[in-house]
Design a protein around this nucleic acid. Structure first.
Length: 271
DNA sequence: CAACGGACCTGCCTGC
DNA sequence: TGCAGGCAGGTCCGTT
């Protein structure tokens, strides 16, 4: 489900409910996520005030004085702020109960998400330390991508989805960005020039920015904090549009598995 | 080192 | 109607 725009939508949604609030307790109903929820989490988080809700790539960071809660939504996770008394559904694995009667509730049917605790600098945590630049960071440029991809034979789409190259770009937005930049997703990354990478960096930012403004993409089950879907799905130009006409040239869009992931593109516009 | 396949899970849809 | 198979927004890890 969630790529950078969905995580950012979630961050903006939960932040006003969490910032400055104290955690009363943590209810872990199902600790078996991607990694087990640390057994000490309820103990260390209880009593802490949440000072800020930040995002790095697809990770959410709930900062407190004593440490940081690191949260990833995996493929199917979502967060909602609910009345703490509301009965949990079957996949509501964790509640962070806040003073004032509300709770931050993690729902994740596939359990690919994670919830971890670090007492130190979260950006030095093993999961975050190796992340590439944020797409909106000034370090993310065509020259950066060009430098990262010299000698690489992997398809450009695989590199674009590699969080160590750039953080937060998943399958939907990689497809959309490559379409906007006119680059074929299967092209070896090392065989793309500086100018085209400049266009790609701009396309990534443009697509993500527009998606954030639309509240993310809801395909099947993504919901924002108030349960509302995102509206970017109606702006998708290639994703899950196999056989439909390209909006630019009218050619039938193709689907092909590239780097183990479904890839959608216009064979005429993208080279 | 880069590249690839497998692994972790559930739900939903399709086709026989 | 039932069931097997395929597919899904992520990403780490082990093997070539």
């Amino acid at each position: 489900m969630p790529e950078l725009p969905e995580v950012e939508t979630t961050r903006r949604g939960i932040s006003p409910h969490l910032t400055g609030r104290r955690v009363v307790r943590v209810d872990v109903r199902e600790p078996r996520l991607r990694w087990p929820v640390p057994t000490e989490l309820p103990r260390v988080l209880a009593g802490q005030a949440i000072e800020a809700v930040a995002r790095r790539g697809k990770y959410l960071l709930l900062r407190t004085r004593g440490g940081t809660l690191i949260l990833h939504l995996g493929m199917s996770g979502s967060l909602q702020v609910v009345p703490a008394a509301a009965g949990p559904g079957p996949h509501d694995h964790v509640d962070v109960v806040l003073e004032g009667g509300q709770a931050l509730r993690l729902t994740d049917p596939r359990r690919f998400g994670c919830l971890l605790w670090t007492p130190g600098d979260p950006l030095r945590h093993p999961l975050l330390a190796g992340l590439g630049p944020e797409p909106f960071d000034t370090a993310f440029t065509g020259a950066y991508l060009y430098g990262q991809t010299r000698g690489r034979r992997a398809p450009v789409k695989a590199l674009l989805m590699d969080s160590h190259v750039v953080a937060g770009v998943g399958n939907i937005y990689a497809n959309e960005s490559l379409f906007l930049a006119g680059i074929h997703p299967g092209r070896p990354a090392g065989r793309i020039g500086l100018a085209r990478y400049g266009r790609l960096a701009g396309a990534v930012r443009a697509v993500l920015e527009k998606a954030i403004r639309a509240g993310g993409t809801t395909l099947r089950d993504f919901v924002g904090v108030d349960g509302q879907p995102g509206y970017f799905a109606q702006h998708l130009r290639v994703y899950e549009r196999e056989g439909k006409p390209c909006e630019v040239c009218g050619h039938s869009l193709h689907r092909r598995v590239i780097g183990q992931r479904a890839s959608y593109f216009c064979p005429r516009c993208q080279r």
